[in-house]
Simulated scan of single mutants.
Amino acid sequence: MNAPLRFLAASALLLASLTTAQAQTPAAGKPAAEFTGAVADKAEYKVVYQLDSDDPKLIKQTLRNMKNALEDPRLKGKLQMELVAYGGGTDVFRQAQPYEADIKALQQQGVLLAQCLNTMKERKISKDELFPFISYVPTGNGELIIRQAQGWAIVHP
């Protein structure tokens, strides 16, 4: 590259860096705007949480994340939520596990609780082993595919 072109390229880089630095620096005497998160400007949000692990820490984390989302002031009254359990995640709905109070609390807030029937068939799990207040879907993956196509966000903690 000849000298004039190198000078132009260097000048362009310098100008770009100065413009970027200036855009990130508040004007003299004005405080920097504080970022407070995304603005929930839609009337409704839809999310499905998928749970496919029997790890108690992950199950508790998923339930806590769901509760936190329901309590987010930006989303209050705007959130439709579903929990889809399959594979090892079926433990969240087992009567022998300690999650009943948490999932009942979510259900009382309108959360759909869906168990994969395919997992139950493969693992020979009876509906009698699960809480009587949950719903069933043919396959967990099918539910996720359909929900995503319907515009639902999918969260896999």
Rank of each mutant, 00 (worst) to 15 (best):
P138F: 06
V47M: 14
L18A: 15
L75Y: 09
N2S: 13
L63P: 05
V84C: 05
S126F: 00
Q107P: 03
C116A: 09
A114N: 14
I103G: 09
G37D: 11
A153P: 06
R147M: 09
K60M: 11
L70A: 15
A3H: 14
K67L: 08
P56F: 12
L8Y: 13
T36M: 03
Q50F: 09
R147Q: 14
V84F: 04
F93K: 02
A10W: 10
K30N: 10
G37E: 13
E34Q: 01
R74G: 13
D128K: 08
N141W: 13
A114D: 12
V111I: 12
D54V: 04
D128M: 00
I59Y: 11
I154R: 13
T25M: 03
P31L: 06
E122H: 01
G88Y: 11
G110S: 08
Y86T: 02
G140S: 05
L13I: 13
M120F: 00
G110Y: 07
R94N: 02
V111S: 12
G151D: 05
L83S: 10
L58M: 14
I146F: 11
D41I: 00
L83K: 06
A28R: 12
K124M: 01
L113Y: 11
G37K: 02
V92G: 05
P56C: 11
K67R: 13
Q80M: 07
L58H: 08
V39I: 03
K104S: 08
